[in-house]
């Protein structure tokens, strides 16, 4: 076995959740079970269900990323924001390296309100 490209693309939690959910439904229909695949899909879905991607939607993520374009953040930083949407300034500081220099205070406030608008928090978080 050979690896052609170890990092062909990033997937956000929402995408992984969708794929695994589909996979789980398909295998259940066919009554064909692969032990290790079943285990890892079950456990991963179990983990992802506790994260915010459960209530996200493809449109919301797209809209969010579109709106984030103007802040010049890196791909991984935006990915983290989708996976764990920041609700406080502290969380933005954690996700964005040297956030004080790269983002102004109003930028940070805008991002938080954008997050709350496009990716609303779960009630039972």
């Amino acid at each position: 076995m050979e690896t052609i490209k170890s990092n062909a693309a990033f997937l956000c939690n929402y995408e992984v959740m969708q794929i695994l959910q589909q996979l789980k439904d398909n295998t259940q229909k066919k009554h064909k079970r692969e032990a290790s695949l079943a285990t890892v899909t079950y456990e991963t879905i179990h983990y992802l269900q506790d994260t915010e991607c459960k209530i996200q939607s493809a449109q919301a993520i797209q809209k969010f990323l579109e709106a984030m374009k103007k802040y010049k953040l890196t791909k991984t930083e935006k990915l983290m924001m989708v996976n764990t949407p920041p609700r406080t300034e502290l969380e933005i500081q954690l996700i964005v390296q040297e956030s004080e220099e790269r983002l102004s205070e109003s930028d940070v406030k805008d991002i938080i309100s954008l997050v709350n608008e496009v990716l609303p928090p779960t009630e039972c978080s």
């Binding site: 076995m1 690896t3 490209k5 062909a8 990033f10």
Partner: peptide
């Protein structure tokens, strides 16, 4: 946290 990896195998 998840990535796609391109691989080749027989």
């Amino acid at each position: 946290m998840f990535v796609l990896t391109e691989m080749k195998d027989v």
